[in-house]
């Protein structure tokens, strides 16, 4: 049995500021409570939880234009997993971060959902206060190699098809 879980949080900072953290896969342990370490090599990320559980992940999408990050947790107990983080611009100085997980077994989606909600709260706390380990890491120029320059046009003309 699979399940699809979604959590979201409005954050009182602009989308580019939120994406600067969300789109940096090596910073996850600095804003996801209960993840104590995070290493990235190419498209592989390994996280370790506070209980000592290590999870190997594959980074699938890190799209600076759409501000979308997607990853897959590989290995048991998962038979299916897709995690998606989207950062939406709601207006000047305001953004919506949506964190979704599709997973089987369904129980794992529910468990991850609790962690995702806590992570969004911590992300909002750091971004809105301007303080916290993820903010410090950004300020220390620990920019992820995944990070490309921010989009130039904030409200581009919609692209209707690839060609």
């Amino acid at each position: 049995m699979r399940a699809s879980i979604r959590r979201e949080r409005t954050i009182e900072v602009g989308a580019d500021a939120a994406w600067a953290i969300v789109g940096a896969p090596d910073l996850l342990h600095l804003w996801f409570p209960g993840i104590v370490s995070c290493t990235v090599e190419g498209d592989r990320r390994t996280i370790t939880t506070r209980t000592g559980l290590a999870m190997d992940e594959t980074i699938l999408t890190c799209d600076n234009l759409q501000r979308r990050f997607q990853y897959r947790i590989d290995g048991r107990p998962f038979t299916e997993h897709l995690g998606t983080l989207d950062v939406h611009e709601l207006g000047p100085g305001r953004s919506l971060v949506v964190y979704a997980t599709d997973a089987a077994p369904a129980v794992m989606a529910i468990i991850l959902g609790g962690g995702m909600a806590a992570a969004l709260e911590e992300l909002a706390r750091q971004l809105e206060s301007g303080q916290g380990p993820a903010i410090d890491a950004l300020a220390g120029a620990r920019r992820s190699p995944w990070h490309l320059p921010a989009p130039i046009q904030s409200s581009p003309t919609p692209v209707e098809a690839p060609v």
């Binding site: 996801f32 409570p33 209960g34 993840i35 506070r50 209980t51 129980v107 468990i111 609790g114 962690g115």
Partner: peptide, 17 residues
């Protein structure tokens, strides 16, 4: 607090750990 807690977020589990 929940028992299923892979992230070690809940104090009951952390006390025991």
């Amino acid at each position: 607090e929940p028992f299923l807690d892979p992230f070690g977020r809940f104090t009951e589990n952390r006390i025991a750990a």
